[in-house]
Design a protein around this nucleic acid. Structure first.
Lengths: 217, 217, 217, 217
DNA sequence: GATGAATGAGCCTTCATTCAT
DNA sequence: TATGAATGAAGGCTCATTCAT
């Protein structure tokens, strides 16, 4: 179904921006979907924002829903890749690596255009399970196990307390998630700014202290 | 077609139960909104599910949006009240109280009909800011400060480490939130069940250890 | 079909205003129909204004349209009667009588509650031909011929010029009609007030001079 | 049902005549509005009569009300222009000019498609004041003052009696107006035909005689 | 490749009318 | 007599999608 792929990589000079069009459409769609949700966004609006006619959108995407899918697919793979690259298969105390990963994740999510995609996925997951599944497969099922493994290795090596790695993963990321959510959805900020770094510092101080091997203290 | 008949054959065409009707409509709306989202749910569907005609819905609620608002309002106040009742203005180490509150919150959210409302609010907050605001005012602005104060008091009394109470609140609840989200939206479970109690145990063990006053350890 | 008639003339003391109800409904209907037109007025509004329930309106009138009909019928007969009483079968120069009649008509139409009915008839005549016909039969076909005859008699007696009585009737009343219309519908006034008496004076001075028998001048 | 097919069998399902479409829609709307009034006319009916789908109507007009407005605007300006062209800024006895203008107005209003617009305006003015105002601004406020000035000039030049020009204007046009109204709304004719010319002859004979300067007679 | 024109299906909302009480 | 409750039948408007050009 998806048409905007392959074969577009040569960019002839005499066809205006031909290759870039689908991407521009996705950009427009992302912006509008994020602002108003999938249902409340019309194909017309997307076309207008991308500088095309409504019909032209259907040249690149077979349906409105395909736009959503294309959107998520485009964003999710590099996002996951970037995250995975950080999580080297480390041997030793995982806490420094976890701190680095957390900071990177947090930084990424501070960029509105990056945050937009998970936000959108969250919103539309209920009505578009394919989207949820894609996000799960391409993102969560790649990144979360890697992080879990990192924790498990730390436990195995005795670097951190004997915790359940899967559950501890939630203890690790959950606060960042909630922090963003309170700010983005309900406008509840601490201090006055997002203060993401402060959150991470406070959180990891607590959590990493809690992870200290029991006997060691 | 679909003249909502069947199974109704002991009831006359016109009933007369005024009192309970609005609640029945809200029940129907909650169910459908949660399943398919606000936009994808028809007033007709709601009416059908509540056993009334479309027009009758408008006897009780002036608009579709008023249904959403009424829904949230109905659920949110008792929910917040129940939570607040738990958070007694305790003096002393806040950790036992926090554990109790966390367990209660988690238990509540395990009930699908209770979880449905925040889930719905989350979904529709972007396009219906009034809903987000109502939820914030009636729920978040009542419960979160109470919890924050509890933590702050613990810090002041030297019962826990000198953390930022607001940020620490996120460390406290975030994991529960993420846990539910992964399960509900993406079907990602640990073990095979929701295992909410296990999550709380693991999380609080870590967090409460991390909160131990520094010198004490 | 009409139910509010006969048999109501005894007014038992222990039934609140029973006999007056239909009239109150008609009053309410007249007010609202005049203000917003028949279509834009809901039975609910009429009921509310009359201080009854919607269903009660249907106790007195079988349909919304019957309200319109009842309304016009109630107003039109006395109106026509009053006008006819004035047009005595005079012998002689009809001009003094015509002046008196014109003044009376004009005075009547200055009363908003009297003007309301023809205004309403005019508006609804297109879609409710029965109404137009009733107005014609009960009002126009009684009053206009009487006035025409008055003019004809004046011509026959040589009191006024040999004009076509029917057409002259239009010359007589038309200006009053247009004057009201410009004021009521378009807010176009002369001077600043309705100035109905000034219009009649100016008009009849002209017209009556024009009616002077030819040789006589 | 009623899939507006038949008789269209030489036309493909999708046509492409952009330019003329809005006008065709207005034509259809005028016809239906005049026959049944604004409220009783469905957009569907208009679309059907214009040979389009309901949705296509909204391609050209943003709302049903905009149809009414567009309709009046389209008709009113040329109508006023034509009338104004006639009313040359004459110096001298205004009666010949007035006679010409009256005849032209009467002739115009005899054409049903021309009469339709003022008739419609009259009907809908109460509930759509914008329409009344537009009609007033584009039509009445242009034509009536011009006629009034013509009369005033005649008075000033001593060509006609010292009358109030504004009020006399009503004496001039009112009868034509009433004549049409009785015929159109109530089916009251003189003779058997509209006999518009006879009315004007009779009326102007009277009126112009009445306007004769006093001393002169 | 690109678009203006068009539409079928559907949705929210309204309202005259009915009926059990 | 009076009404609260209920509904069938529209009606205005929107929108994803299609097609001729």
């Amino acid at each position: 179904m998806e048409k905007h792929s392959a074969s577009n990589d040569r960019e002839p000079k005499f066809r205006r921006r031909a290759g870039a069009r689908p991407d521009e459409v996705l950009d427009a769609a992302l912006h509008l979907f994020t602002e108003a949700g999938f249902e409340r966004t019309t194909v017309e609006q997307i076309a207008h924002r991308a500088g095309l006619s409504k019909a032209a959108v259907y040249l690149y995407f077979p349906s409105k829903k395909a736009l959503l899918a294309g959107l998520v697919r485009r964003a999710v793979v590099p996002l996951a890749d970037r995250a995975l690259a950080q999580i080297t298969s480390y041997q030793g105390d995982p806490r420094p690596v976890l701190r680095a990963v957390m900071t990177q994740i947090a930084t990424n999510l501070t960029d509105p255009s990056v945050l937009a995609v998970p936000k959108l996925v969250l919103r539309e997951a209920v009505t578009a399970p394919e989207i949820a599944q894609m996000y799960r497969e391409e993102m969560l099922d790649r990144v979360l196990p890697a992080l879990t493994a990192l924790i498990a290795q730390g436990v195995a090596g005795g670097h951190i307390r004997a915790v359940d790695p899967s559950l501890t993963l939630r203890s690790l990321i959950g606060p960042v998630f909630l922090h963003i959510l309170l700010a983005e959805v309900f406008g509840i900020l601490t201090g006055g700014e997002l203060a993401m770094q402060a959150l991470i510092d406070n959180h990891l101080t607590l959590l990493f202290a809690g992870l200290e091997p029991e006997g060691k203290a």
